[in-house]
Design a protein around this nucleic acid. Structure first.
Lengths: 341, 341
DNA sequence: ATGAAAGCGCTAACAC
DNA sequence: GTGTTAGCGCTTTCAT
């Protein structure tokens, strides 16, 4: 397979066209000045030889490879079995790749380049998209130090807001879901939160506490790791429904948690909706929210559009343009059976 | 943003550690032999300087960048608006990226590198995954000529079967769906096929013709471009249902076509299922098959697993290993309301 | 308008 | 075990 045939180089083309490598370079990059006739001859020679300028060599000089990196936090080392089920991620990554290609970039998914075992190619990217940076994200520290452009999709919760981060508007979203739960008849709303220290979780917690207190109630929040998935949600549900004063509505941060809470409620013989309303802040995993019985009310975070926006901003930055900073991301509450009896 | 700070080079480290660049290189690549103590000194100097070997420069010498390219056919130039809706693609790409990372590679979505306007970085990949190669795919011609490893996900219909292609087993799948339509009561089964000249379409056509003829019936096939989507399917449905002897079952190649056929049937007042059964060969787009009324029977092609397999084979090949050739891809028929009355 | 020469950062021979 | 010397393929001054 990996044969010996070596690609034609700029020298080969130069020789064949009877010019110098410099001229060939100019003819291709449009940088210097070449007589139209010479350029044609060069182009012809190149065609005959099947020559294409080598991107890597070019990148070595220009320190631009034409590649954008996508880092998915906080799942590092990438827990692929987990991620594969997460629609949100799949859609984000697919759409980002598409948007990048449209801008003439390649988009590469890379593991955290600050890790010792990271593939070296991770460092070669011209810029990075970091989904859900964590508190004091080490990658952000590193990129800032090395002056590599990046864009957080979600804020680094420990750093001040800045044009380096796309605002997810988590607080807004959570408040709307909580309002919906209340409108659906929930009078005592609990929350199942995640444990990753990112904007999504930290702002959600704040929003939940604010919302509950504004209504003069006592917060009732439990926490389960994202990767604990449905089993974690089930545990959380059992904990909540086993209380002396159990909640009649539960807000969850992930679709899997919500599915687990739903299972726990049903196992206790609670009607959903009826005895308990369940809703989820992120339609991260359609298998769990759309396909459960009843399907779970959730929020479409529009990952496809979000990715597109993120790539546009990052590409601008890589090219030295200071792009306008988009406002909080759009989203849509999708009301399903779990809150609509 | 794009500051001037320049990264430490191998020379800087060499100077600081009081050794030669070669020694530093060896210390990092583990290639030559370095005294343990020297290696430690080098490592320390590197740490102090924040040095990381430059992948691009390294790639220039080794002609290995550590990047796998993913080319999506036959949608070139990438029709992103279209692709974004195609779950199959999103899942395949996301999963492939994940699998690549696990193997220490980056995975990059690139437009057809044989196109003149393609981002040059496309050529820099160490190997290529080509989903659904088209007849006499020019990219395959080029890669073969340049001895670049590749793997077709699906055969190039015009070339002989070979280890260079993953077998989708299209014929098997189509036959099973047709059998299912018959079992569900269909006695005259029509087909709505696509127009892309790839394994999926060409083998499906053959399989359909074989199946119909084996039952002593006359084939009834219409064709609509994949990108025509639901509207195309609707047209096809109108054509079919307007016939003197209309079919009572329709096999479709894409979820969107199926959704269109369904709409056409309902517009005519036909009951689905009942008067007409509809099924689809590929659960390519869940919005259209899962969420239609009734939901449409379809086939899960397991893109997540398929991508994983493909990446494994390609990575082996890039590394000079001749991997075992996997058999036809797995799939699962998902029976839904459109064939289950 | 064209070319010669000097590298980009790294690694592979080949000395020592 | 370590250093010297040549480049990888390209771009870029700077001459001509």
């Amino acid at each position: 397979m990996a044969g010996k045939r070596t690609r034609a180089t700029i020298k080969d083309v130069a020789r064949r066209a009877g010019v110098s490598p410099t001229t060939v370079s100019h003819a291709f990059s449009g940088n210097g000045t070449v007589a139209a006739e010479t350029a044609e001859r060069v182009r012809e020679a190149a065609r005959e030889l099947g020559y294409r300028p080598d991107t890597v060599a070019r990148g070595l000089r220009s320190s631009r490879l034409g590649v954008l990196g996508l880092v998915v936090r906080p799942l590092d080392p990438l827990d692929t079995a987990f991620l594969e089920g997460v629609d949100y991620f799949l859609r984000f990554a697919g759409s980002a790749a598409l948007a990048a290609v449209e801008r003439g970039y390649g988009l590469m998914l890379v593991p955290d380049p600050t890790r010792a075992d990271a593939p070296a190619v991770g460092l070669a990217c011209d810029g990075f998209l970091i989904t859900e940076p964590v508190e004091n994200d080490p990658l952000i520290t590193m990129l800032t130090r090395e002056c590599v452009p990046f864009l957080g999709v979600g804020r680094d919760p420990a750093r001040p807001a800045s044009p380096d981060y796309l605002d997810l508007g988590t607080g807004r979203i959570v408040a709307e879901v909580l309002d919906h739960l209340a409108a659906a008849g929930g009078s005592r709303v609990a929350a199942v939160l995640g444990t990753d220290r990112n904007e999504w979780n930290l702002d959600a917690e704040t929003a939940y506490l604010d919302w509950v207190r504004a209504r003069g109630q006592r917060p009732l929040a439990v926490r389960r790791a994202e990767v604990a998935g449905e089993a974690g949600g089930r545990e959380a549900g059992e904990e909540l429904f086993g209380m002396a004063e159990p909640p009649d509505a539960v807000y969850c941060q992930t679709g899997r948690h919500a599915a687990g809470v739903l299972a726990a409620a049903r196992a206790r013989g609670l009607a959903v909706p009826g005895d308990v309303r369940i809703a989820c802040g992120a339609d991260s995993d359609s298998e769990h929210t759309r396909s459960s019985v009843p399907p779970i009310t959730s929020v479409d975070l529009r990952p496809v559009r979000l990715a597109r926006t993120a790539v546009a901003v990052l590409a601008d930055r890589v090219e030295g343009i200071e792009p306008p900073v988009p406002g909080p991301a759009e989203y849509e509450l999708i009301v399903r059976g779990s809150t609509r009896g």
